[in-house]
């Protein structure tokens, strides 16, 4: 018989110090303290490993994937700004017209001044430095690298959206996969988010402002992460607060349904209703 039976057995009352050891000793499970320590330790280690494995649920993975998206956002923005600086040496007029990282390759490849100027409706002599083949190679590779990052971000977003539609379909539908995943990540998992109240969900991501409110009596934040939801971001200012309240209460219901009664769809109707309200 393996000693696990001794460890697994539920005890009706807390054992005295050394009781487990002497029980095992009397029954031949171990011959001395060192053996006992070894067996107790491996039992606990293996059991804890099993629990960690079970607990490393899909919501954990998706929470981390959405973290990686944020990392890429930072990387893309910072790299894009450096590239703009670089390109401004060669194409000072054209770079002024560029508004987003995605536009760099669209307008700049191939790196021909005439073509770029035509695409951007620019005329007249450029102030930029001339480009030799080494310049071209360096710039081209840099733009391609940026494109790679942009593409990878897109793929990660698709991945998160797909996973979210499996883990928490109602949440994904009402909040959007990425915002849903970020809420889940900040709450520390699906279960925690399911337990959160609507008013808590409304301000997830605005912890600093909340703290200032509690501590220094500043205005309470109206919304946190959900401000990136199109319903809120596209709404006129005066409606944002009210819509944020409505949206977070719907999110709260959706995530509860996802966690407690798997399989039911409640988000579709809510989404229609929300869209109607947004238009009003």
């Amino acid at each position: 018989m393996k000693s696990a039976v001794l460890f697994e057995k539920t005890k009706s009352k807390v054992l005295e110090k050394g009781e487990l050891y002497s029980t095992g000793l009397n029954n031949g499970f171990w011959g001395n303290k060192t053996e006992y320590a070894k067996q107790l330790n491996s039992y606990a280690v293996n059991y804890a490993k099993k629990k960690v494995k079970e607990a490393t649920a899909r919501d954990f993975i998706v929470s981390k994937a959405v973290g990686a998206i944020e990392g890429l956002n930072d990387a893309i923005n910072s790299y894009y700004n450096r590239l703009r600086d670089l390109l401004s040496g060669f194409y000072p007029e054209a770079i002024k017209e560029i508004k987003s990282p995605e536009e760099l390759s669209k307008f700049f490849i191939p790196l021909e001044k005439d073509i770029i100027n035509r695409k951007l409706n620019l005329y007249g002599e450029s102030m930029g430095a001339d480009m030799n083949t080494h310049d071209k190679k360096a710039v081209l590779n840099s733009i391609k690298t940026l494109d790679c990052l942009i593409l990878q971000r897109k793929e990660l977003i698709n991945y998160v959206e797909k996973e979210m539609s499996i883990i928490a379909p109602n949440l994904a539908e009402i909040a959007g996969g990425v915002i849903g995943a970020k809420l889940m990540s900040s709450a520390g998992g699906l279960e925690n988010l399911a337990k959160a109240t609507a008013s808590r969900i409304q301000v997830i991501g605005a912890e600093k402002a909340m703290f200032r409110h509690l501590k220094q009596g500043a205005k309470p934040p109206k919304y946190g992460l959900i401000m990136h939801h199109p319903l809120i971001s596209e709404a006129p200012r005066e409606m944002k607060g009210r819509l944020a309240r409505t949206l977070s209460s719907k999110i709260a219901i959706c995530v509860k349904v996802d966690f407690y009664s798997k399989g039911k769809n409640v988000a579709s109707d809510m989404k229609k209703e929300l869209e109607k309200r947004g238009k009003k």
Partner: peptide, 24 residues
């Protein structure tokens, strides 16, 4: 070897009484 890891909630002390004995 003398560390016995337990995945548990301190608010539910009955859940680890299978291995935890009276402590110093």
């Amino acid at each position: 070897r003398n560390i016995i890891p337990i995945h548990g909630d301190a608010n539910k002390p009955e859940e680890y009484s299978n291995i935890v004995e009276k402590c110093d």
